[in-house]
Simulated scan of single mutants.
Amino acid sequence: MASLLVGCSQNSNSSESVATSGESGELKLKVAHYYAETHPQHIALVEKFEKTVEEKTNGAIDVEIYPSSQLGDEEQYTNGVRNGTIEMSVSGMGMQNAEPKIGAMELPFIFEDFDHAKAAFEGDVGTFLGDAFSQFGVETLAVTANGFRVISSNREVSSMDDLKGLRLRLPNMDTYLKFGDAMKVSIQPMGLSEVFTALEQKVIDGQENPYATLKESGFYEVQSHVLESNHMFSPNVYLINQKFIDSLPEDQQTIIRDAAKEAAAYEWDLLTQSVDETKQFLADHGIEIVVPSDSFKAEMVEAVKPIHDNVINNTDWGKEYFELVEKYK
């Protein structure tokens, strides 16, 4: 995928008000995310969301996109959207520790492929997720694809025995930690910005993320193998501060919501189309990709069943959620 040269302001000051205006009177809409500028998430925001909103509002809304955690890590900028100092973000499921329904999106081995995930998130599963986020003062404009997660490492992993004790970086979130326990790895929680150095210095043996993140964050430079486990599908959401969007004229609200859906659809296409290209890139750079055997995959799936059972049996929404996921297979 060709790199995109992007001109966007990087020096806006945060404001305690819900909306900020520039010198010419246009409304500032800051969008924060943690992806590199070459990642499909950023490209879709620039080519579709920013362009569409600015054109259709005749410049009344000035979209400023801040990639690569320029406005803080995911927790910081998501909290900024909640309190109104940042208008919008591309966020993952980090708020699952406050709302377990959000974490259910990333339960291991529940989505079969991209088509299954896309249909679910464009349907009732997406509505379920939006409702879960709404209690935090934000509106979910659209769901985008982060992708199916794989495990990169500094040695070959081709069995459950190889996973045992592997010093694996995982996000410090309940769903991930339970997955790590099920795989019997040595869980190493840390922020994404710390991972490259930890891999380079061999503080950890590996990490898990979708292929695009493995490439765009440069992790392939300090890893030798990838286990194509596809153990979780990770969605992202376009979150916007509810007071901010409610304060806009109705026509501008519609423009923003429609532009978000357009950008999200484009991002799904870019991300899914990039997988094979990214795998070839990694192979060309010396990464050995290991596809798990049927028996190894079956062992991993069996190991996470208690996680699923816990959600189904110990929440008042788990059974309904699994039925919604099943509906879109």
Rank of each mutant, 00 (worst) to 15 (best):
N58I: 08
E37T: 15
Q201L: 14
S152E: 09
I65F: 04
E277G: 14
D115I: 10
K329W: 02
L239A: 05
V185M: 06
K319Y: 04
V203G: 04
T85E: 11
T278W: 02
S158I: 01
S89Q: 00
L168G: 09
T315H: 12
S152N: 09
Q201D: 12
R167T: 11
N230Q: 15
A259Y: 01
K297H: 10
P210E: 10
E228T: 02
A98G: 12
D269C: 03
F136M: 10
K178Q: 10
G191T: 12
A298Q: 13
V157M: 05
T213G: 07
V90C: 01
V311Y: 14
T278S: 12
V143M: 05
A259S: 12
A212V: 12
E228Q: 01
Y328H: 07
S9C: 14
F128T: 11
I289P: 01
G72I: 01
I187Y: 00
E288D: 14
K101P: 12
N241T: 13
P235N: 13
N230S: 03
E74K: 08
H225F: 10
Q188A: 11
E74L: 00
S15Y: 03
P108W: 06
L227S: 08
L166M: 05
F244G: 05
E106L: 03
E228A: 06
A19T: 10
I65W: 13
F148T: 03
